[in-house]
């Protein structure tokens, strides 16, 4: 209980430090000016979104192997955070694109991959939320989600690679975005990467604990009253 408070406090401090790095430490980029600072937020968002999707993948495999409820909850938590972060990364990337290349959208392979993954994992969340798996305590829903969690991540490299080839046909709007970063800029990137990593961990932990609590509450609700389920529920209540 207190662990998560400590972690949240650390996260808050790290985010404040990250902001200080962005606004006070990193030099102003010459051609783009203030807008370039989006990069320090955009990049960690996209990065941790990808990590979230990897966690979904790993937890899904674990669920397929062990059928443990915990890995299903973890996969769901990571997917939610991944969709949130990649959504924010898309918005920030789009603003960046508008400022840098004068278009809201471009077939940049990274941006395109992020968008496709956002679609895929948004569909994943819809599946988790729907009754597609049928009732029965969602055991089938967990299994279906796990299969999709694996399939979706297998698609990531293919999507990225195909988006890259696709772009090479259309002339790129701008060749590369992160080419000549000054050392101070790199420091800022790394600090913010770490700060957002802490934020990511906090969110994941909080969402996972919440999922666990939900599961326990459901268990109590379903066979909580001792007279309904004989001796079994007495034990269940203590668990």
């Amino acid at each position: 209980m207190s662990n998560i408070r400590i972690l949240s406090a650390l996260t808050l401090i790290a985010l404040i430090v990250g902001q200080w790095f962005i606004w006070a430490y990193a030099p102003l980029e010459e051609t783009m000016g203030l807008v370039q600072k989006i990069f320090y937020i955009h990049m960690p968002l996209a990065w941790w979104a990808l990590v979230s999707f990897f966690v979904v993948f790993a937890a899904s495999i674990r669920h397929l192997m062990t059928r443990s409820a915990g890995s299903d909850i973890l996969a769901g938590a990571a997917a939610e955070i991944g969709v949130l972060l990649s959504g924010l990364a898309l918005v920030s990337g789009s603003i960046w694109g508008r400022a840098a290349w004068n278009v809201w959208w471009t077939w940049d392979p990274r941006l395109t991959t992020t968008l496709i993954m956002w679609f895929v994992y948004a569909g994943y969340l819809v599946l988790r939320g729907s009754s597609a798996g049928g009732g029965m305590g969602g055991e089938r829903r967990a299994m279906v989600s796990a299969v999709l969690g694996v399939v979706a991540f297998l698609d990531v490299p293919l999507v990225f690679y195909s988006a890259r080839i696709w772009r090479s046909v259309h002339p790129a709007v701008l060749a590369s975005q992160g080419g000549g970063l000054e050392p101070e800029m790199w420091h800022t990137v790394l600090v913010n990467l770490a700060a957002f990593g802490l934020l990511w961990l906090t969110l994941l932990w909080a969402r996972y604990s919440l999922g666990r609590a939900e599961e326990r509450a459901q268990a109590l609700l379903l066979h909580g009253s001792p007279d309904a389920q004989g001796g079994q529920a007495g034990q269940g209540g203590q668990a």
Binding site: E139, L222, H223
Partner: peptide, 10 residues
């Protein structure tokens, strides 16, 4: 057998 957290067979 459990369905989710519901015990159906013991």
């Amino acid at each position: 057998k459990f369905f989710g957290s519901r015990l159906v067979l013991r």
